[in-house]
Amino acid sequence: MSSLRQTGAAAPPRTRAQAPRQVGTLAAIGAVLGKELRLERRAPQTLVAMAIFSATAFVVFHFALQRDTLEGGLAAGVLWVTLTLAALLGIGRSFVADRDEGGLDGFLLAPVDRTALLAAKVITMLVFLVAIELVAVPLFALLLLGPSPGAGQWLQLAAVLGLADIGIAVIGTLVAAIAVRTRARDLITSILALPLLVPVIIGASQASEPLLSAGTGGAPARWLAVLALYDLIFGLLAWALFDYLVED
């Protein structure tokens, strides 16, 4: 949840920069976010699919690797491949309802800053990712993880997950906004998002490897720094570029 609060705190400066006649960006973000969460609550699609996918992926990894327990680098790899591919499912769905049901047109007609849509979508994706991880990570610990990490290591893993989630949510929203206007939406989402997420996967698995090993090793600070740098750069880029993706 720490990741959620960070993004929420980043929004207010944008509001102040807006022209006074516009509806407050925070209000717009709240409205779109509320719509996304209500939609998912009334007709759960994405979250259920992501959860089932993660659980199945762990079973598949058990048989494919022929291991009962994993630790260290292998455990980090399995966890991050599963989470990344589950995130891809969510990314693929992110703008579909808006395009099909005319939500995007409705938003463009409203006199609000378009960055609000980006922020709302990123927060939605973050909420989804955190929700999935609340299910998938304990399940992973139960099914596959060999050593049981201590409380401090769980906290550090939460920090790694949070930093990685911000990056995945930002890139995911950007890619989803690009891909939703293309013909081969699902193909474009996967081939575009995966290479862009490689630095996140490198950073996250390097940072979580010592946490998932037997012992009391902590996450190396430089990998947290790499993840934070990634979040910062692509967060700013997405903010600068998103307007061009929803122009019409």
Partner: peptide, 23 residues
């Protein structure tokens, strides 16, 4: 327009990717 957005994102991705892979 979309290709331009991609080109900018990918251009910024190159140095970050080099940092991550090198580390």
């Amino acid at each position: 327009r979309y290709a331009a957005v991609f080109a900018v994102v990918a251009g910024a991705f190159i140095p970050l990717n080099f940092i991550a892979v090198r580390l």
